[in-house]
Write a protein that binds this DNA or RNA. Structure first.
Lengths: 205, 205
DNA sequence: AGTATAAAAACGAACATCCGTTCTTGACAG
DNA sequence: CTGTCAAGAACGGATGTTCGTTTTTATACT
């Protein structure tokens, strides 16, 4: 029985997903046809349908990949041991990573499409919420650590502050994909807006 | 010669656009069919096609409307005479307006779809860029006024700061439409992150 | 006022096209 | 041989748009 190696199967899957991502970047989820994916991947309809039960599952796989990579860009600095990282540093790391992910694979562009699609697909919405939902507690933990260092008042609203921080990421993504904003410029601006410990007491706004 | 009043024509157009917006909110641009729009508007195919040459033009009209309303939410405070409004106040006004636009007509949800769609439609991308492009100079002007009041250093990077400020708006929109974030919470968080004149010198981060 | 009329507006069934999926067929490894 | 994998033509269904027909309505004329 000619069963193919597990490694080969994974490679095939990746081949399909890579092709699909390129198609989605060019035409969006709905306007890319299965034929497009067949062509871009160099595989036949029968072959692709062996690895994915349908178009929606390909979209879900791509979406999960993109959202996971973006939230993943936030985690390292948040969870670093020792003194908590300054907010600016955390966002800087995330934004820099996002820029690289955009240049290399267009991940932020996929993300914007996922946001839109999740507004009408409960399936995708659940996927997205599951992944994004894991970020909020993480960021809240970071805010708490800042508070415990007395960098923030004891009664700081933890969740609200975390939400505002998280918002800085889509704030960059949207401007990046719509107007080509680069990370350096955005971060330069954030340095003005966000107070840093070094500049406590300095006049800002 | 029986031509109908201009007023009637405008009402008809609005009737189509209102129906289309509801459909788009429920199903997205691509998954709503013309039949859906016919049904929701209570008009026939022929009638709708008398007012719009095709589906794409309806999408463009809805998109332009949504983006215009959102950028419009930013302008009043930015252009107010007298002393420049604090950054927090400007963003607060915009975010509060956005929440209302969401409850009333789902405008932010439409906006997210427009962002995604503009990634693959040069037509729409041009529309969006034209409208959004008008916001950056406005916000830059606000930053300059802050600088001229010596609320910011003389060498403040104007464009970068404006970009960071602008990012706070999509930062709210995305979290609003994906996780139901409310304006009050977001603004409470922003008050922690953004230094305000009253709190200059207070420990923050 | 009442009516005729012609052009605009609306209707809605039909059309051509296209897309996701299936299924039969063949190739090839064990 | 035999069972897995791949190929790709074919299918059923749905979609955006058109177009011939019907209805409405503003105006001209009696």
């Amino acid at each position: 029985m000619p069963k193919v190696s597990e490694q080969h199967r994974a490679a095939r899957r990746a081949q399909i997903l890579d092709a699909a991502r390129v198609c989605f970047l060019r035409n969006g989820f709905h306007a890319t046809t299965m034929q497009d994916v067949f062509g871009a991947s160099g595989m036949s309809a029968g072959a692709v349908y062996r690895y994915f039960p349908g178009k929606e599952e390909i979209v879900r796989a791509i979406a999960g990949e993109a959202i996971t990579e973006i939230t993943g860009a936030l985690q390292p600095l948040v969870e670093a041991p020792g003194a908590p990282a300054p907010f600016y540093e955390v966002i800087a790391a995330a934004v820099t990573a996002l820029e690289r992910l955009d240049v290399e694979r267009g991940i932020p562009r996929i993300a914007v499409q996922v946001w839109a699609e999740s507004l009408r697909s409960p399936r995708l919405a659940a996927d997205v919420e599951a992944i994004i939902g894991s970020v909020a507690p993480l960021m809240m933990r970071l805010v708490e650590r800042h508070r415990d260092q007395a960098w923030l008042p004891a009664d700081v609203p933890v969740e609200a502050t975390a939400r505002a921080l998280i918002g800085l990421v889509p704030g960059f993504i949207v401007q990046r994909v719509l107007t080509g904003l680069d990370a350096a410029t955005y971060l330069e601006g954030l340095r003005v807006l966000l107070p840093s410990r070094d500049r406590v007491g300095a006049a800002a706004q």
